[in-house]
Amino acid sequence: MDAERAAAIERFNQICRESRVAVRIVSATPEQIAELEQAIADYLAAHGWSALDIANGRHVREGWDIGGFAPEDAPSDQQMAAAAAWDEAEAIAKRIAQRVLGQLHPAMEIEVLFDRDGYDEVCEVLSPPRPFGDENA
């Protein structure tokens, strides 16, 4: 493996480690949001997932759904486990929001924050685009 690829892999791992889940609820205080985000971070850490891992798993599972669940496009077991971890992170946020806000169905948004520019740069090194029409590139 060349030095540029090894550095890109290390940078990718760093971006994953530094990714985090952000929760938005209009009626919540900053302290309540911090509690929700910390609970999700604790869950992910306890299960060895990064926020970016679970977001990617969810993305792959949704693409499979959109594609009609074609068996040949089925996500890997790891991708499905990551998607399930996203579902659990959402459920954790909802349970805590219900408890601290006293609302049965709090309207919330959950997103993953990460170094998008760094991620794009790493992807260029790890998966460079092939020239159009060049089957052997």
Rank of each mutant, 00 (worst) to 15 (best):
G48A: 06
G63W: 05
E31R: 13
R61I: 10
P71G: 02
I66C: 03
Q38L: 06
A34R: 14
V60A: 10
H59W: 08
G68K: 05
A70M: 06
D42K: 06
A39P: 01
N56K: 06
S50N: 09
V60P: 01
Y43R: 08
L44S: 03
I33E: 02
I66E: 15
P71S: 14
Y43K: 03
D73C: 09
R58P: 09
L52A: 07
I40Q: 08
R58D: 12
E37V: 00
H59F: 05
I33L: 10
I40D: 03
H59I: 00
A74S: 08
G63H: 03
E31Q: 14
D65R: 15
W49S: 08
W49P: 09
G63I: 06
I66L: 11
H47G: 01
E37C: 02
W49F: 15
G63N: 09
T29M: 02
D65W: 12
E72V: 05
L44G: 05
A74N: 05
F69W: 12
D73M: 07
D53H: 15
W64Y: 15
E72N: 02
G68E: 13
I33H: 06
E72F: 05
H47C: 04
D65V: 08
G48C: 13
L44C: 11
A74R: 15
V60F: 10
D42M: 02
W49M: 15
I40H: 04
D42A: 10
F69G: 01
E72M: 03
D65T: 13
F69D: 00
I66M: 07
S50A: 11
G67S: 12
A70Y: 07
D73A: 12
F69H: 13
D42V: 00
G67D: 14
A51R: 05
S50Y: 12
L52N: 03
Q32A: 07
E72C: 04
A46H: 05
A51W: 01
A34Q: 12
I54R: 06
S50K: 07
Y43W: 00
R61E: 08
E35A: 15
V60G: 01
Q32E: 03
G48H: 14
P30Y: 14
I40K: 03
D73G: 02
D65S: 08
A39S: 08
G68T: 08
N56G: 04
H59Q: 10
I33W: 03
P30N: 12
L44P: 11
I40N: 00
I33Q: 01
A46M: 09
I54S: 08
A39R: 02
A39C: 01
P71D: 15
A41T: 05
F69E: 09
A45Q: 15
D65Y: 05
G68P: 14
I66Q: 02
S50T: 15
R61M: 08
D53N: 14
A46E: 15
R58W: 09
P30E: 13
T29K: 07
V60R: 14
A51P: 04
